[in-house]
Amino acid sequence: MTVAGLDIGSRTIGLVVVNDGEIVFREVVDTTFDPLEQCRRLLAQRDFDVLVATGYGRHLAQANFADQVITEIKAFALGCSHVFPQCRTILDIGGQDTKAISLGEGGKVADFQMNDRCAAGTGKFLEVMAAAMGLLPEEMGRLALQAEGEVKISSMCTVFAESEVTGLIARGTPRPLIARGLHEAICDRASALLRRVGVRREVVFAGGVAHNPCMRVLLEERLGLQLLVPENPQLVGALGAALSVLSRDDVRA
Protein backbone atom coordinates (compact mmCIF):
# COMPACT_ATOMS: atom_id res chain seq x y z
CA MET A 1 0.00 0.00 0.00
CA THR A 2 1.18 3.52 -0.80
CA VAL A 3 0.47 6.21 1.77
CA ALA A 4 0.99 9.94 1.48
CA GLY A 5 1.61 12.02 4.58
CA LEU A 6 1.04 15.74 4.27
CA ASP A 7 2.12 18.17 7.01
CA ILE A 8 0.55 21.59 6.48
CA GLY A 9 2.44 23.91 8.78
CA SER A 10 2.24 27.66 9.16
CA ARG A 11 5.48 28.19 7.18
CA THR A 12 6.01 25.07 5.08
CA ILE A 13 4.08 22.13 3.70
CA GLY A 14 5.84 18.77 3.61
CA LEU A 15 4.87 15.69 1.64
CA VAL A 16 6.25 12.21 2.18
CA VAL A 17 5.06 9.19 0.19
CA VAL A 18 5.75 5.79 1.72
CA ASN A 19 5.46 2.50 -0.11
CA ASP A 20 5.99 -0.78 1.76
CA GLY A 21 7.79 1.08 4.53
CA GLU A 22 10.17 2.80 2.09
CA ILE A 23 10.11 6.54 1.45
CA VAL A 24 9.59 6.93 -2.28
CA PHE A 25 9.06 10.67 -2.46
CA ARG A 26 9.62 13.76 -0.32
CA GLU A 27 9.27 17.47 -0.87
CA VAL A 28 8.90 20.72 1.08
CA VAL A 29 7.27 23.88 -0.25
CA ASP A 30 6.34 27.20 1.34
CA THR A 31 2.82 27.41 2.73
CA THR A 32 2.18 30.87 1.23
CA PHE A 33 -1.21 32.55 1.56
CA ASP A 34 -2.93 29.78 -0.41
CA PRO A 35 -2.08 26.50 1.31
CA LEU A 36 -4.78 24.56 -0.51
CA GLU A 37 -3.35 25.41 -3.91
CA GLN A 38 0.15 24.55 -2.69
CA CYS A 39 -1.12 21.15 -1.51
CA ARG A 40 -2.80 20.48 -4.84
CA ARG A 41 0.40 21.34 -6.67
CA LEU A 42 2.41 19.05 -4.39
CA LEU A 43 0.00 16.17 -4.78
CA ALA A 44 -0.40 16.45 -8.56
CA GLN A 45 1.00 13.40 -10.39
CA ARG A 46 1.62 11.54 -7.13
CA ASP A 47 0.15 8.08 -6.75
CA PHE A 48 -1.09 6.89 -3.36
CA ASP A 49 -3.92 4.87 -1.83
CA VAL A 50 -4.43 6.87 1.35
CA LEU A 51 -3.66 10.47 2.24
CA VAL A 52 -3.17 11.45 5.89
CA ALA A 53 -2.92 15.13 6.77
CA THR A 54 -1.42 16.73 9.86
CA GLY A 55 -0.33 20.21 10.95
CA TYR A 56 -2.41 23.28 11.59
CA GLY A 57 -3.97 23.05 8.11
CA ARG A 58 -5.13 19.44 8.56
CA HIS A 59 -8.81 20.30 8.86
CA LEU A 60 -8.67 22.33 5.67
CA ALA A 61 -7.14 19.29 3.98
CA GLN A 62 -9.76 16.98 5.46
CA ALA A 63 -12.55 19.16 4.13
CA ASN A 64 -11.00 18.98 0.67
CA PHE A 65 -8.99 15.86 -0.07
CA ALA A 66 -7.42 14.11 2.92
CA ASP A 67 -8.69 10.66 3.98
CA GLN A 68 -7.57 10.92 7.61
CA VAL A 69 -6.08 13.47 9.96
CA ILE A 70 -3.87 13.20 13.02
CA THR A 71 -2.40 15.96 15.17
CA GLU A 72 1.19 17.06 14.66
CA ILE A 73 1.98 15.79 18.16
CA LYS A 74 1.19 12.21 17.20
CA ALA A 75 2.77 12.70 13.76
CA PHE A 76 6.08 13.88 15.25
CA ALA A 77 6.05 11.04 17.77
CA LEU A 78 5.62 8.45 15.01
CA GLY A 79 8.05 10.13 12.62
CA CYS A 80 10.81 10.68 15.16
CA SER A 81 10.60 7.16 16.57
CA HIS A 82 10.81 5.77 13.05
CA VAL A 83 13.95 7.76 12.21
CA PHE A 84 15.49 7.24 15.66
CA PRO A 85 13.98 4.19 17.40
CA GLN A 86 15.89 5.10 20.59
CA CYS A 87 14.08 8.48 20.80
CA ARG A 88 12.34 9.18 24.13
CA THR A 89 11.93 12.98 24.03
CA ILE A 90 11.18 15.31 21.13
CA LEU A 91 11.64 19.02 20.75
CA ASP A 92 9.94 20.47 17.70
CA ILE A 93 10.31 24.16 17.00
CA GLY A 94 8.13 25.03 14.06
CA GLY A 95 6.78 28.18 12.50
CA GLN A 96 4.18 29.09 15.10
CA ASP A 97 4.35 26.31 17.68
CA THR A 98 6.98 24.79 19.90
CA LYS A 99 6.28 21.33 21.23
CA ALA A 100 8.01 19.14 23.75
CA ILE A 101 6.86 15.52 23.59
CA SER A 102 7.75 12.69 25.90
CA LEU A 103 7.42 9.16 24.52
CA GLY A 104 6.40 6.12 26.48
CA GLU A 105 6.35 2.48 25.57
CA GLY A 106 6.40 1.71 21.84
CA GLY A 107 6.89 5.35 20.88
CA LYS A 108 3.46 6.37 22.16
CA VAL A 109 2.91 9.93 23.34
CA ALA A 110 3.11 9.93 27.16
CA ASP A 111 2.98 13.69 27.70
CA PHE A 112 3.35 16.90 25.73
CA GLN A 113 3.67 20.62 26.29
CA MET A 114 3.20 23.45 23.84
CA ASN A 115 4.07 27.14 23.87
CA ASP A 116 1.53 29.80 24.81
CA ARG A 117 -0.87 30.99 22.17
CA CYS A 118 1.48 33.64 20.75
CA ALA A 119 4.49 32.86 18.57
CA ALA A 120 7.01 33.55 21.37
CA GLY A 121 10.02 31.30 21.00
CA THR A 122 9.07 29.85 17.63
CA GLY A 123 10.49 30.03 14.12
CA LYS A 124 8.29 33.03 13.44
CA PHE A 125 9.97 34.86 16.30
CA LEU A 126 13.41 34.24 14.79
CA GLU A 127 12.21 35.42 11.39
CA VAL A 128 10.79 38.66 12.74
CA MET A 129 13.96 39.33 14.73
CA ALA A 130 16.21 38.57 11.76
CA ALA A 131 14.19 41.03 9.69
CA ALA A 132 14.55 43.65 12.44
CA MET A 133 18.32 43.30 12.04
CA GLY A 134 18.23 43.21 8.25
CA LEU A 135 19.34 39.57 8.12
CA LEU A 136 18.08 36.31 6.66
CA PRO A 137 17.21 33.77 9.39
CA GLU A 138 20.06 31.44 8.41
CA GLU A 139 22.52 34.35 8.46
CA MET A 140 21.38 35.24 11.94
CA GLY A 141 22.13 31.72 13.18
CA ARG A 142 25.66 31.81 11.76
CA LEU A 143 26.26 35.28 13.16
CA ALA A 144 25.06 34.24 16.60
CA LEU A 145 27.55 31.35 16.61
CA GLN A 146 30.44 33.76 16.02
CA ALA A 147 29.50 35.96 18.95
CA GLU A 148 31.81 36.13 21.94
CA GLY A 149 29.41 36.88 24.74
CA GLU A 150 25.80 37.91 24.48
CA VAL A 151 23.30 40.53 25.51
CA LYS A 152 20.29 39.52 27.54
CA ILE A 153 16.97 39.78 25.71
CA SER A 154 14.33 39.74 28.40
CA SER A 155 11.14 39.98 26.34
CA MET A 156 9.80 36.87 24.69
CA CYS A 157 6.79 38.63 23.24
CA THR A 158 7.62 39.13 19.56
CA VAL A 159 6.42 42.73 19.62
CA PHE A 160 8.27 43.70 22.79
CA ALA A 161 11.41 41.84 21.77
CA GLU A 162 11.45 43.69 18.49
CA SER A 163 11.43 47.02 20.34
CA GLU A 164 14.20 45.70 22.58
CA VAL A 165 16.28 44.75 19.53
CA THR A 166 15.66 48.15 17.96
CA GLY A 167 16.83 49.77 21.20
CA LEU A 168 20.00 47.63 21.28
CA ILE A 169 20.80 48.53 17.65
CA ALA A 170 20.32 52.21 18.50
CA ARG A 171 22.82 51.84 21.34
CA GLY A 172 25.35 50.41 18.91
CA THR A 173 25.34 46.82 20.21
CA PRO A 174 27.07 44.56 17.63
CA ARG A 175 24.63 42.39 15.71
CA PRO A 176 26.28 39.06 16.59
CA LEU A 177 25.72 39.77 20.28
CA ILE A 178 22.05 40.60 19.74
CA ALA A 179 21.62 37.54 17.54
CA ARG A 180 23.19 35.39 20.24
CA GLY A 181 20.91 36.90 22.89
CA LEU A 182 17.85 36.10 20.80
CA HIS A 183 18.90 32.49 20.37
CA GLU A 184 19.60 32.19 24.08
CA ALA A 185 16.12 33.51 24.82
CA ILE A 186 14.50 30.85 22.65
CA CYS A 187 16.77 28.24 24.14
CA ASP A 188 15.54 29.22 27.65
CA ARG A 189 11.96 28.78 26.56
CA ALA A 190 12.52 25.50 24.78
CA SER A 191 14.49 23.93 27.60
CA ALA A 192 11.87 24.99 30.15
CA LEU A 193 9.21 23.34 28.00
CA LEU A 194 11.34 20.20 27.69
CA ARG A 195 11.91 20.01 31.45
CA ARG A 196 8.16 20.09 32.01
CA VAL A 197 7.76 16.80 30.16
CA GLY A 198 11.08 15.45 31.43
CA VAL A 199 14.32 15.20 29.41
CA ARG A 200 15.15 11.55 28.75
CA ARG A 201 17.67 10.38 26.19
CA GLU A 202 17.71 10.21 23.30
CA VAL A 203 16.38 13.67 22.54
CA VAL A 204 15.40 14.43 18.96
CA PHE A 205 15.35 18.01 17.70
CA ALA A 206 12.99 18.49 14.74
CA GLY A 207 11.00 21.16 12.95
CA GLY A 208 12.29 23.94 10.72
CA VAL A 209 14.36 25.60 13.45
CA ALA A 210 16.44 22.40 13.79
CA HIS A 211 18.21 23.60 10.62
CA ASN A 212 19.61 26.46 12.67
CA PRO A 213 23.15 25.47 13.80
CA CYS A 214 23.24 27.95 16.66
CA MET A 215 20.02 26.70 18.25
CA ARG A 216 21.37 23.18 18.17
CA VAL A 217 24.69 24.07 19.78
CA LEU A 218 23.07 26.19 22.49
CA LEU A 219 20.46 23.56 23.31
CA GLU A 220 23.12 20.84 23.55
CA GLU A 221 25.13 22.99 25.95
CA ARG A 222 22.08 23.81 28.01
CA LEU A 223 20.79 20.25 28.24
CA GLY A 224 24.24 18.70 28.55
CA LEU A 225 23.59 16.08 25.92
CA GLN A 226 23.82 15.50 22.19
CA LEU A 227 20.68 16.03 20.19
CA LEU A 228 19.69 13.79 17.34
CA VAL A 229 18.62 15.82 14.33
CA PRO A 230 16.86 14.07 11.43
CA GLU A 231 18.26 14.60 7.96
CA ASN A 232 15.00 16.34 6.99
CA PRO A 233 13.72 17.87 10.24
CA GLN A 234 10.85 19.62 8.46
CA LEU A 235 9.51 16.34 7.04
CA VAL A 236 9.22 14.31 10.22
CA GLY A 237 5.57 15.29 10.66
CA ALA A 238 4.64 14.26 7.12
CA LEU A 239 6.53 10.99 7.58
CA GLY A 240 4.69 10.32 10.85
CA ALA A 241 1.35 11.02 9.19
CA ALA A 242 2.10 8.46 6.47
CA LEU A 243 3.32 5.91 9.01
CA SER A 244 0.19 6.29 11.14
CA VAL A 245 -1.75 4.22 8.62
CA LEU A 246 0.92 1.58 8.21
CA SER A 247 1.43 1.08 11.93
CA ARG A 248 -2.30 0.62 12.40
CA ASP A 249 -2.26 -2.08 9.74
CA ASP A 250 0.69 -3.77 11.40
CA VAL A 251 -1.26 -3.90 14.63
CA ARG A 252 -4.26 -5.41 12.90
CA ALA A 253 -2.12 -8.07 11.24
Binding site: T71, E72, I73, K74, V109, F112
Partner: peptide, 8 residues
Protein backbone atom coordinates in the same frame (compact mmCIF):
# COMPACT_ATOMS: atom_id res chain seq x y z
CA UNK B 1 -3.46 15.41 20.83
CA UNK B 2 -4.66 14.70 24.38
CA UNK B 3 -7.49 12.54 23.03
CA UNK B 4 -5.09 10.62 20.75
CA UNK B 5 -2.80 10.12 23.72
CA UNK B 6 -5.57 8.83 25.98
CA UNK B 7 -6.87 6.52 23.26
CA UNK B 8 -3.50 4.97 22.46
Amino acid sequence: ALIEMVET
